[in-house]
Amino acid sequence: MNFIKTFFSREILVYSKKSSNIISPIVFFLICITFFPLAVSNDPSQLSRFAPGIIWICILLSGMLSVQTIFKEDFDDGSLDLFYAKDFSILQIVLIKIIVNWLFSALPLIILSSSMVFLLYFPISNLLNLLSSLLIGTIIISFFGALAGALSLGKNSILASAIMLPLSLPVLILGSSASTYSSENIGFFLLLLLSLLFLTIPIISLACMGAIRLHYE
């Protein structure tokens, strides 16, 4: 218990001291969002139709920036060695790191995406659907990103994105569908996302542990 608390506050401290961790996904997200209307169309009716997809793609891409470096610093500076030496539970470390990373990189984007009601003429009636699907979906994406980052520790970051993006495809499909359809189908897609979340957490946490371990062969 004491370990969890100390480790949690350590992670929070590390993230909050490095402001680029919070700011760069936000900047990237806003740039992406701005470019879509300029490149595709500025017609409000078309934009509001594409808005869920645009928001989801931008979230996925900006999530990609932060998530894949999740274990990198601890691997590079030797902290992971220390965790293995001290025989700490790697499962707890993985979960805490994913949660803290989600808090700092995904949560601000979810809050920010409610402003897309104005920028992309996102239908306000669907806003709750969008936010709830983002809330579940970004957690799943964080898990996939952590796995990609763990597998490609010490390798180039393009590889990590290449691993993470195909894995996140179901989340993208289900999430953007959930935020497109306002009325009867929303429950169906949210339920699917939720079951995907419960499937993801145990499997990917285990896979992450194995993936970190293999760098110590």
Partner: peptide, 11 residues
């Protein structure tokens, strides 16, 4: 081998 095995299973 270990990395690819994990990825193949998750995929």
């Amino acid at each position: 081998d270990q990395a690819v095995s994990i990825l193949t299973m998750v995929g």
